[in-house]
Design a protein around this nucleic acid. Sequence first.
DNA 1: TTCCATATTTGGTCTGACCAGATTGCCGCA
DNA 2: TGCGGCAATCTGGTCAGACCAAATATGGAA
Lengths: 250, 250
Amino acid sequence: MSRTANPPGAIPSVADGVIEVLRERITAGVYALGSRLPSERDMAQEFGVSRATIRQAILALEARGLLEVRDRSGAYVQAPTTGRVSDALLQLISQTPRSITIRDLVEVRMVFEVEMAGLAAERRTREDLRQIARALADTAALVDSVEDWAEADVEFHGALARATANPLFAIIYDSLRSAFIEQRMRTGTTLPETRAAAFRWHQRIFDAVGTGDAAGARRAMHEHLLDARQTMLRYATGDIDGVSQPQGST
Amino acid sequence: MSRTANPPGAIPSVADGVIEVLRERITAGVYALGSRLPSERDMAQEFGVSRATIRQAILALEARGLLEVRDRSGAYVQAPTTGRVSDALLQLISQTPRSITIRDLVEVRMVFEVEMAGLAAERRTREDLRQIARALADTAALVDSVEDWAEADVEFHGALARATANPLFAIIYDSLRSAFIEQRMRTGTTLPETRAAAFRWHQRIFDAVGTGDAAGARRAMHEHLLDARQTMLRYATGDIDGVSQPQGST
DNA sequence: TTCCATATTTGGTCTGACCAGATTGCCGCA
DNA sequence: TGCGGCAATCTGGTCAGACCAAATATGGAA
């Protein structure tokens, strides 16, 4: 795996050593999840290095999502989130030579989500159903706000992913999610009637999942995505290459 | 999207400002891909901040995969790789509460590799075929070395992913790849006869892709994975929760 | 016991310095 | 003129010590 991008021959820096030790302590639970690490000054003393080096190590671990540094408070052990994955993925997508088109995106969704719907129908628990139902209700209630609706829509599909009882699906979906959104999948969903149509599809999917009708769920999801693709392609301005890199808000 | 993990209320630090400017310059091409950024000292002067701050910004961008810092040489603009994504994904997987099992992994592969095989059969170019063939030949030639064989095997599936003509598939596959490997999918592939069996499946898949037989390719891949799952489950020691975090080589 | 002022701690930033390897450029030899 | 090699220079890595302002902890007053 790609370590800290240290070419095999390179001399591991002092900071790398600190990073390694800290990482071990974190995964070993010496520094429990949510707990605060010793202050930079204390660690510098303990490791016998300068504060600058400790600082570099902490920053690296923060970038990797293992720590959260709160200004004037301390560094806290953080549970990894899908955010890191999707950030990296988004960045990758935005710089892919042959840019990712709407068609590509829908194709991938088609592959994953159709099967996800089927698995969800087979395995969903009562709690899963409750969450899916809530998301469904939200899409109906928030149909007037493009932003809120998009969020609810994503949540609906996310709940479906979780209902597959396979955490990998949820992880993958979450990772792609920001890409989906960022790439203004909304292209077509800015129209109220599009959102209304989506609701009807969602309803069908939900019913199938609820009754444990895997084949029906797959079929409904498949048709939903076919329909969505058509709508999006119609309103798309073309390829989505210039993925809007998030702009700093300063 | 999750910025630099800056809570909305937080005061953006000086370093954050520098990060933002540098990032813009990189994406805008002011600092071209592969080129070297000014030295830390020069930038510190230009931005009117201390070298420590510049350093922090550079480290952050390195962690995000935008830069590669070479000791005593400089910081170079780097093309993003799937490595970042898979690192993050691997970390995420290794810390998921309900640990990821072999069954989960194969299920995900089943979902998208089957479809990938089909798409590859429909769209593969002559060049794609050549690469797939080469990987196939490698798996046969390297059948005696577990390590080399695993690499070639992964390459075979990777070439298939690229042949779908949808870059997202290749990206996703590459991102999952290290997870697949790390999680010692090899559990069953350490046996020579397993590798021999895999070769026969690969051959069938290759033939179907070569003749443009999408349905056949899907079927062959499906059966290949079913077979692989059975083998792996038989030799698996159980769930793979303690995902081997890569150990520092020091 | 409650609450607020004060003292302490903590991360963020700055300055200035040294090290050792990478880079560059110049000089002398062929 | 061409080129190999040595030395000055440059660069990132690390260290030391200091100041700031906000977050926290402390202790005493109400």
